[in-house]
Amino acid sequence: MKKVDKKWVLLCSTAIAAVYSAGYYTTESQAAVQPIQQHIVSNLQKNNDSLNGTGKKVVNSQKNKLYKDGTFTGSGWNRRGSIGVQVTIKNDKIKDVEISDFAMHYSESDVVGLPDEVLKKQNAQVMNVSGATYSTQAFQDAVQEALDQARNA
């Protein structure tokens, strides 16, 4: 069969590149919104904690503790999506970890056992046993961010 004229290939490729560019710029605001929203949520949590009256009391009464008591949110994201978590701490112990938002392009079942692993290990360093590197990394980052917020200054 006769090969396609290269001029047509060039013309069509240019048109496709133009549509791609239009799509890229149209969705730029949507692409930027996701991580920013996650940050706003975690910052709100942080601000609420430091602004309310009890917050100060808690900090004063827990000067010798590594973490403040309470529930803290954190988020982790990479090129494959984002994960949001809520970590509850009491008396320097991680009492509960919940995945509050799962927006990865992979299955949520990949990370379903990770909260229990955090409770067991009492830190964010979970094992990547399933090969789900990106989801595990995002989860670790989210838990670490929550723990960083809970840390006493």
């Binding site: 799509g23 090129r79 999506g81």
Partner: peptide
């Protein structure tokens, strides 16, 4: 995907970007 992005349907933003 451009139409999806314009109408804010689905997650077209990711599909236009790496990976």
């Amino acid at each position: 995907l451009l139409l999806m992005g314009m109408l804010n349907v689905g997650n077209a933003a990711d599909a236009f970007r790496p990976p």
